[in-house]
């Protein structure tokens, strides 16, 4: 938390979110701290169910109202705690200052509205007094920007291909020039060639508009390609974070992150098989008392099963693992139990 201050746009501290039903309580996000710097991109990596989307929805306060609950923590956007402001203020922020791109472009567009109308709606929502011609002009500009011929604005979503739809979704998200763009696996539903196109476009627009971005993905390749910072989530916790260099090439590496890298194919090595991480993620309604990764960890120690590790800071690199605790008390305490 050292480089805090002016250049931090979004600062999440100790966020804890649960999903509560009559039957069980799911601890979806546990003590998560993240920071997105102004104009920079933070990649949030982790497997399905790690709490990435829950974190993103908490930022916009869009958790399902019947079950989702934010128990504690702070989400500061430009120094203002989003968890404390009222719903009307929140609506002004949504779409206007923080915009979100959802995973599946096939379902995130309204099938009975033309794409132009949908972009216009987004602009209109936050620029009530803007004259119609001005809105039309902006719709055309934004379509051009995402590489769609403006004449196509009178077409319906079903007349577009998947990649084109995701461009429209991105156009809607960028239409009010937000300070922060949350992209929740924006390319997962697309095939590889289209992924590359859309990613390049996102990258280009981000650089042109200077938008900060929270990119949720499970693809380390994408992270390396467009992110400045990375946070790795596992079972609701951020187990490692830092700059891309820290995480990809740094000397310390969390065993889970190491496992993720081992399960990627490497062009230069002669391995016959990939090395996946054995086991499954723990049941989030019944988390282990110690380190959440301990049951699957190869470097497991006694302390790991007894104590939840504290975050260790090494420059900008933060790790949550007993391995880097430099022989502190927990090791002893762990044997004591």
């Amino acid at each position: 938390m050292e480089n805090k201050g002016e250049n931090i746009l979004l600062d999440i501290e100790n966020l804890k979110v649960i999903y509560k039903t009559d039957l069980e309580t799911v601890e979806a996000v546990n003590d998560v701290s993240l920071a997105v710097r102004r104009g920079r991109t933070l990649g949030l990596v982790g497997e399905t169910g790690a709490g990435k989307t829950t974190t993103a929805l908490s930022i916009l306060r869009l958790l399902p109202s019947t079950t989702g609950r934010i128990l504690s923590g702070k989400i500061e956007f430009n120094g203002e705690d989003l968890l404390k402001i009222d719903e009307n203020m929140m609506r002004v922020i949504r779409g206007n200052r923080i915009a979100m791109v959802f995973q599946d472009p096939m379902t995130s567009l309204n099938p009975v509205m033309t794409v132009g109308d949908q972009i216009a709606e987004a602009i209109e929502l936050h620029n009530g007094k803007m004259p119609k011609e001005e809105i039309d002009r902006r719709v055309e500009n934004i379509l051009q920007m995402v590489g769609i011929i403006p004449q196509r604005r009178f077409e319906y979503p079903h007349q577009f291909s998947g990649g084109m739809k995701q461009r429209v979704v991105i156009a809607i998200a960028l239409s009010c020039e937000p300070e922060l763009l949350i992209a929740d696996e924006p390319t997962t539903a697309l095939d590889v060639t289209i992924q590359a196109q859309v990613l390049n476009m996102i990258k280009e627009l981000r650089d042109r508009l200077g938008t900060a971005m929270l990119l949720i993905t499970h693809d380390l390749g994408i992270v390396a390609q467009i992110c400045d910072d990375v946070a790795v989530m596992y079972a609701g916790e951020v187990i490692e974070s830092g700059s891309v260099e820290d995480v990809f090439t740094g000397d310390a590496r969390h065993p889970y992150t190491a496992g993720l890298f081992n399960s990627l194919p490497d062009l230069h090595s002669q391995a016959k098989r990939l090395k996946p991480i054995p086991g499954l993620m723990p049941d989030p309604s019944n988390l282990p008392p110690g380190c959440v990764f301990a049951p699957r960890c190869e470097s497991r120690m006694d302390a790991c099963e007894a104590h939840r590790p504290k975050t260790v800071q090494r420059g900008s690199h933060r790790l949550r693992c007993h391995l880097f605790g430099a022989g502190q008390a927990p090791a002893v305490g762990g044997q004591g139990r």
Binding site: L62, I93, A99, M100, F102, N110, P111
Partner: peptide
């Protein structure tokens, strides 16, 4: 439940607007 309704909410649309422009036309 659909994503475009959630997307509209994420875009800052209020309940009345979501019902009128996204839900009713699709149920029409």
């Amino acid at each position: 439940e659909l994503e475009y309704v959630e997307a509209a909410r994420a875009g800052g649309a209020g309940s009345a607007r979501i019902i009128a422009t996204h839900i009713i036309p699709n149920a029409m």
